[in-house]
Amino acid sequence: MPFDPSQIPIVQIVFFVMTACAIGGAIGVVSSPNLFHSALYLVLSLFGVAGYYVLLSAGFLAVVQLMVYVGAIAILILFAIMFARRLMGQGENQNNQQWWLSLPIVMILFAVLVGVVNTVSWPVSGAEPTGDTVMELGHAFLGSYLIPFEVVSILLSVALIGGIFLAREKVEAEEA
C-alpha cells in the first residue's frame, strides 16, 4: 500500500498533544510543591484548553482563552502568590488533617463524572461554522442575549468594586 500523506491524522495528533498539555498541566498544578510552579502548570493546562477550542473551530474563544487566562488571570494569580507567600518557600505541605475526608468525595465526584460522560449522548456535528463567527457573536450579544450582556457589565463592575474594596484595606494597612 503506497504511503498517502493526506491520511496522516493531524487533527488526532494535535488533539493528543493538547490533551497531554491540559491533563499534564492539571496534574502538575496539584502535585507540585512549589506554588509558583503550580501556577505555571495551570498556564500550560489552560493553553491545552485553548487548543481544544481551535480544534472545535472556535477561533475567537481560543484567542480569548489565551488573552484572558494566560495574559491576565495567570498574571493575577502569580501576583497573588507573591503577595501572600514568602518567595522560594521550601514548598508547602501538600496534605492537611482533612485529606482522608476529601478522598471519598473526590472518588464520588469522579464516579459521577464518568457516569455522566457515558450516559449523555453528545450531539456531534462535523459541519464547519458558516460566515464570520465573530460577527454572529456581536449580533447575538446585542440581540437575543442582550440582558445577559448587560448583566455581565454589572457583574464586572461589582467584581471591580469588590476587588478594589478588599485590596484597599491592605494598602491602607501598609500605609498606616
Partner: peptide, 20 residues
Amino acid sequence: YIYAIIFVVFDIEAVFLFPF
C-alpha cells in the same frame, strides 16, 4: 495587585466589546 484586578476586568470587557 489592585492594578492587576482592574486589568483583568477591563480585559474581559474588551473581549465583549470586540464582537460588538
